[in-house]
Amino acid sequence: MSRIASVLSSLESSGRKALIPFVTAGDPDPSLTVPLMHALVEAGADIIELGVPFSDPMADGPTIQRSSERALARKVSLRSVIAAVSEFRRSNTGTPVVLMGYANPIEAMGVDAFADAASAAGTDGVLVVDYPPEESHDFAARVRSAGMDVIFLIAPTSTETRIRAVGEIGSGYIYYVSLKGVTGAGHLDVSEVARRIPDIRKAVGLPVGVGFGIRDGASARALSAVADGVVIGSRIIEEIENSPQDEVLARVKALVGGIRQAMDSREAST
């Protein structure tokens, strides 16, 4: 069983939901990436989504765009992101790490070189935003053969046929985008998400994480009532953006810890 599958199944058996924070590698500074990953784990993260910066993040809103720009200004590359995973693994062998980014940096490195290096570094999953299932059969096969999960997005507009296709090619978990739009938008409709998730889970046969638009403990708690995991990105990046560098770790830890508490208190109260 992959590290992702085993973490998710042990959470399930203990009746808890996965907290999946997203941060962009290299933001606000490459020296903080690994410490930030450890801080996320200490705050209660179950899986870390580590963003690989790209010059043209078409599916992201302004917050994640800016984090990508900060990281690129500090010369962060796919290779240096993989090196950060490897460094993280020296002291953490339990928390799954998913690399999330766009196709071009991977194609520039070469799919084979990427799959081998990412896997050797201890990466558990890969989510390429602009590789929908129909364009990624070879890629998915190669990543799986290197022992990693391939994670796909499902949108509110995805048809049943597409959801089933994702179920066939994806593994680990499914990332359900909770709203129409880009990351960081603020019009999340919890009841609509709640209505969709059971069918999606059934169609894909995988745990469902929900993301895009989750900003606080209350929305995280509401969504963890229906989903298997909650992804929080833009809100954490805002915290990074608004903190002096020497306070980034403490403030991110406090924010994520608060969300963890809110999610767990739901579980305590049901």
Binding site: M58, A59, A103, V129, D130, Y131, P132, E134, E135, F152, L153, I154, A155, T157, S158, T159, R162, V177, K180, G181, V182
Partner: peptide, 14 residues
């Protein structure tokens, strides 16, 4: 060529 976009755009393109 192809359709290298996030899932969020697929329905619009369809």
């Amino acid at each position: 060529g192809g359709t290298f976009v996030a899932e969020t755009l697929i329905a619009a393109l369809d």
